[in-house]
């Protein structure tokens, strides 16, 4: 058994942006283990895409083709990739930790009696073995994990874990292979993806954002955040639980299931900094975090931190801003 199989993802609009980050992770794993990387693109009519991936550093690229892969269905992906991995017998299977990966990869790994090392932020090599790092307890701690199973082993990398590689001058050979999948065995019947009514709020263009999390405690306290946002000339946003509670509409949600933002200033009020939120705002220019828990992971990415009660800090900030404005 040898080699690293990197599984890239495409959607109706083309590449998932994390595909090439995962490929970069696979290439780095390849450098650490001396194993060649094959970039695999499952789909239908994906030869050109595989050829494109071939220019980003793998030793080979593979278009895994089948009509049953023209739209995503978990069983189709599990069957097609399961057969490919069975035949290729790679040492490692590397995936981007996308929603799609979360849907099929655990069952794919389970087919081989393995668990997926999911959502890794990176790895280090110790004693000749890669040790994978992933977040635990909503980002409060980092766990270092080893595989104790024989190969193949399955890893998915978190958004931003690796920087997407530059296209190299050289193009690796591209193969087209018909996937071994029986459409009659695909039990999920997917319908066409759709969007909700157009988003009313485009947070991605906001210069300043005040975002609230669970720490706001109660719907009635949102007024305080609104006042602070007004004083800063900022848009109001929130982490997922606030929108789940119906306190703010979903189109004000920042994070993996909401909007991705990169304002000049991001003020996080009572947001712990779970990874699902952080991926949506870590590109912000200046991050201010106010939280009563000094251990909250939001402080790992904050430029300015205030450990304290937001119900004291926010009014003081509003006061201060009014003072200096007047």
């Amino acid at each position: 058994m040898s080699g690293i199989l990197a599984i890239l993802e495409r959607g109706p609009g083309g590449w998932h942006r994390m595909s090439f980050e995962a490929l970069a992770g696979a290439l780095e794993l390849g450098r650490a283990t001396g194993e060649p990387v094959t970039a695999c693109v499952p789909g239908f009519g994906v030869e050109a895409a595989a050829a494109e991936a071939a220019a980003f550093g793998p030793a080979a690229a593979l278009a895994l083709e089948h009509e049953a892969l023209s739209a995503y269905a978990a069983d189709a992906w599990i069957e097609a990739l399961g057969a490919l991995i069975g035949a290729m017998a790679p040492s490692w299977v590397v995936l981007p930790h996308t929603y799609q990966t979360r849907d099929f990869a655990p069952a794919l790994a389970a087919r081989f009696g393995r668990a997926l090392m999911a959502d890794c932020t990176g790895f280090v090599v110790e004693g000749g073995r890669p040790v994978f790092e992933r977040q635990l307890f909503q980002g409060k701690l980092t766990g270092r994990f080893l595989f104790e199973t024989p190969k193949p082993n399955f890893v998915s990398f978190q958004a931003g874990a690796f920087r997407a590689p530059q296209a190299a001058g050289q193009r690796a050979p591209v193969a087209v292979q018909r996937a071994d999948v029986d459409p009659a065995r695909v039990r999920q019947k997917p319908e066409a993806p759709f969007r909700e009514a157009a988003q009313a709020v485009d947070l991605s263009s906001a210069e300043r954002i005040v975002a609230v999390g669970r720490g706001i405690g109660d719907e009635g306290n949102l007024e305080l955040a609104r006042e602070l946002a007004a004083a800063l000339g900022a848009e109001l946003a929130a982490s997922r639980p606030i929108c789940d509670n119906g306190w703010l509409p979903m189109d004000r949600q920042v994070g993996s299931s909401g909007q991705t933002v990169a304002p000049k200033l991001y003020v996080a009020l009572g947001i712990s900094g779970a990874i699902q939120h952080v991926v949506g705002m870590k590109g912000s220019g200046c991050i201010v975090a106010v939280n009563r828990d000094p251990q909250a992971p939001i402080f790992e990415i904050a430029d300015y931190g205030i450990v304290g009660d937001l119900f004291e800090v926010a009014p003081a900030l509003i006061e201060e801003l009014k003072k200096s404005a007047g």
């Binding site: 701690l141 931190g305 450990v307």
Partner: peptide, 27 residues
């Protein structure tokens, strides 16, 4: 499934956070 936890640690800080001390008004 073969995943073994080999160690737990506090996460590394990505940015150098300046913590502001004092009363709420001072902060």
């Amino acid at each position: 499934g073969g995943l073994r936890l080999a160690g737990l640690a506090q996460p590394r800080r990505v940015r150098q956070t300046q913590f502001l001390e004092g009363s709420a008004a001072e902060q």
